[in-house]
Write a protein that binds this DNA or RNA. Structure first.
Lengths: 340, 340
DNA sequence: CTGAAAGCGCTTACAG
DNA sequence: CTGAAAGCGCTTACAG
């Protein structure tokens, strides 16, 4: 375990640890260390395969070269993809990432934030849950580099990167309307999170613009915390109790998947009996028969922007706020055929 | 940023940092600190919301309370699920996890191991790639707590947790045989990784036991590193060039998904024209029409066992080797109907 | 029963 | 141009 330390190098080079530290940190010029001493140290360091001890360095500088990633659910495809890209990109800058899932539970989220603070991560990437304004606000006041992912907190001016939920849902409604459907149901999560609200708003706005009725009873909100079976049951009930429904929009992919299951069990033919569109893409949507039309998020772009914004904060001191909203993309497949 | 330190508590309690450290580390009894001093310290610590500085502690003890998780691809559903459970379970023991994806690339894997060593993680969970015997062996010699995931390295006696690949593939073949199919093709990854080899072996063994022919040309190996489009093309070619084929087994889920796409494009009716079975389960398999019969891995059990084994190593010194092989489960759906 | 002191491996203000 | 020394916040062997 015992690795090579700066002292070992100093001894071999016949200089002080101070000098070694300067050279290894690229301050040779600044500190006017002679060319030859500098070279000698570098050579010895690489020969000994010196690796600075991050703990010691962190203890001294307060920097851990670690970032914290708090997502809703790391096992969810969207977040798993984000996690992958974040790790890859962070690695390029010498950062490692510590992660955790909130399950959309405030207490878990708070616990996670506490652990990460305690671990002294240098920066945070957070998918906030509801009711965590205070924690985010505290981080902001502590001037911790931070960027919110997938959603933001109204009235708290932080960095964030997310998809354009309003536009995505607007496009979804428009697509349905253009294909001749006007009686459309919407299934969403029972949550007052801003990104879900914006999806409802976007959808409503498109309906309104087209003078299509969109009464309350055509909106179904399902709790994030009930079981899959219950969720499917609720979707079935919703569809059954609105027999006039011609099309249905699921505001998030896991609900869309449940929707597919519900309709399959009911024997409803997607695309024929009922037009179907979902937010978020998924392997399943691409390969299902019929292919499921959806509003895809630019996952890679989101992840890359997140890390970019965070790295900027980490490395510069100028703290302009970066709020990035990326366009959602309508992916047309066969689940919303022209209404005959 | 400046947190409360042990000194602050010592000052308030009117004792030395040493005493505070003893009490906070539960060594009050052992060090025979008086009950009242002990209580006073605990009270002050909680009032001040003292959080030990892990960096300082780690520097001193050499323990970081961090584990390294190296998977093939964190964005893959199997590994993403493992990552989730590993994080949850590790958290219970006060550990956090640092992760990375190898993409099944040896150099990436080695790079990851180097970074984790350098970060001084206390233990490792590793999905090894080919040709990393030396690194694993080195870790073993350094007596680092480690458990291999999803596969093992032959002739290197380490802990590991994985599914029973031989039995799973054997069951897949048997299922097909029992339903009346004898001319069966197998699609796998071109890799000499042990888990893939065992799947081929299990499949072959079942075929042999049933006296069914299983010639080389009925096995298709596809490189992990070619594009999705190329993979699909190769699958198509394989099916087309074996018109006698009655059933097909995909040795891993991403290939199974490609297989679904290939057959869809070819207009082959799964279950009717060709029986279909895949290793690993997936949302898509459950919801596809017809439902896809598969060999499911007990993901949760795998993850829980992994962390259990690792925690045992981390906390005890007795180092018996734990090699856990969990049963795969045949999930029968509608893609292998009784042959008519 | 309790404390002073050393030391983990760095960085950096200060001195020369 | 280079080095001695302090200090980040802990733990622990040693002393009393």
């Amino acid at each position: 375990m015992k690795g090579v330390s700066i002292k070992d190098i100093a001894k071999q080079a016949g200089v002080s640890p101070t000098t070694v530290s300067f050279v290894l940190n690229g301050k040779a010029k600044e500190k006017r260390i002679s060319e030859q001493v500098s070279k000698k140290i570098l050579k010895i360091a690489s020969k000994l395969k010196y690796k600075p001890n991050q703990l010691a360095r962190g203890l001294r500088t307060g920097k851990t070269k670690t970032i914290g990633l708090i997502v809703e659910d790391i096992a969810n495809l969207f977040f798993a993809n984000v996690a992958k890209i974040v790790e890859e990109e962070a690695d390029k800058y010498g950062y490692k990432v510590l992660y955790g899932s909130t399950e959309d539970n405030v207490d878990k989220a708070k616990g996670l934030m506490e652990v990460l603070e305690y671990r002294q991560v240098d920066g945070y990437i957070i998918t906030p849950t509801a009711q965590m304004e205070k924690e985010i606000e505290a981080l902001r006041h502590a001037r911790k580099p931070m960027v919110l992912l997938d959603r933001y907190i109204p009235n708290v001016p932080t960095n964030y990167v997310m998809v354009n939920n309003f536009q995505g849902a607007y496009d979804a409604a428009n697509h349905l309307l253009n294909r001749g459907y006007t009686k459309i149901g919407l299934v969403t999560i029972a949550s007052d999170q801003i990104q879900m609200k914006e999806r409802i708003d976007g959808f409503s706005a498109a309906m309104k613009a087209a003078n299509a009725a969109f009464p309350k009873k055509m909106i179904k909100k399902i709790s994030f915390h009930i079981s899959k079976e219950e969720s499917i049951r609720e979707i079935k009930n919703f569809v059954e109790s609105n027999p006039q429904m011609e099309g249905i929009f699921f505001a998030t992919n896991y609900l869309g998947i449940y929707g597919l299951e519900a309709l399959k069990e009911m024997g409803v033919a997607i695309g024929k009996d009922l037009a179907f569109i979902s937010f978020d893409d998924h392997d399943l949507f691409r390969l299902y028969t019929p292919g499921i039309t959806c509003i895809a998020q630019p996952i890679h772009d989101i992840a890359r922007n997140v890390i970019q914004v965070l790295m900027n904060e980490l490395n510069n001191n100028k703290k302009e706020v970066n709020q990035i909203i990326l366009p959602a993309q309508l992916v047309v497949r066969d689940s919303c055929l022209l209404k005959s």
